[in-house]
Simulated assay, not measured.
Amino acid sequence: MRNQLFGVSLFVDLLPPRLAFAARLLADMLVLLIAAQVIRAAFAQITTARFTVFLSLGWPKWIMAALLAAGMTMVVLSRLLEMAVNIRNQRP
């Protein structure tokens, strides 16, 4: 996330180390919250759009929503792992 969210790292690098850690943790929590809401929306799409298709792909919408939910689940898992590593490295 440090290399991907340039705006976050630009401002966080200017903070003292303890505040930088807290700011990165807050950014991770916001990413987790957004990903959780996307997963919730994808499940709502799966339950309501069983027989509709994307016109450009011809695939059922529920398949695309399931792929989106799987991708966001991977984002959540990667952020949790990264947060655990950061917390472990922050402790003395």
Rank of each mutant, 00 (worst) to 15 (best):
A65T: 03
I34L: 15
A65S: 09
A36C: 09
W59R: 06
Q4V: 13
P92N: 03
D28F: 05
L55T: 15
A44Y: 01
P92Y: 04
V31H: 08
P92G: 11
I87C: 07
A65D: 00
S56V: 08
I34E: 13
V8M: 06
I63D: 02
R50C: 13
S78K: 08
M29L: 11
D28R: 06
F51Q: 04
P16C: 10
V85C: 07
F11L: 13
I87P: 00
A69H: 00
P92W: 08
V53E: 09
R24P: 02
A20H: 10
A22D: 07
A22S: 07
N3E: 10
F6T: 15
L14A: 14
A27M: 04
I63Q: 06
W62G: 01
V12K: 04
R24I: 14
I63F: 03
F21Q: 03
S56K: 02
A66H: 02
D13A: 10
Q45C: 04
Q45M: 09
S78T: 09
V76F: 03
L68H: 00
R24D: 10
Q45S: 06
G7H: 11
A69G: 02
V38H: 07
M83N: 06
Q90M: 13
G7S: 12
I63W: 04
A44V: 11
V76A: 10
I63G: 02
F51C: 05
G71C: 03
W62D: 00
M72N: 01
M83F: 12
V38G: 01
R50D: 15
M74L: 15
N3L: 10
V38K: 04
I46W: 05
I34W: 14
V31M: 15
V12R: 02
A22W: 05
E82Q: 08
T48C: 05
L26A: 14
F51N: 09
R79I: 12
R24N: 10
F6V: 15
A65G: 01
A66M: 10
S9T: 15
A41P: 00
R91A: 08
R50E: 14
S9D: 11
L14I: 12
A23F: 13
I39G: 02
L80W: 02
T52S: 15
G71H: 02
V76K: 06
T73A: 12
M64I: 13
A41E: 03
A84C: 02
R40I: 12
V8D: 06
F21V: 10
A69C: 00
A41W: 05
Q4I: 11
P60H: 11
T52V: 14
L26Y: 11
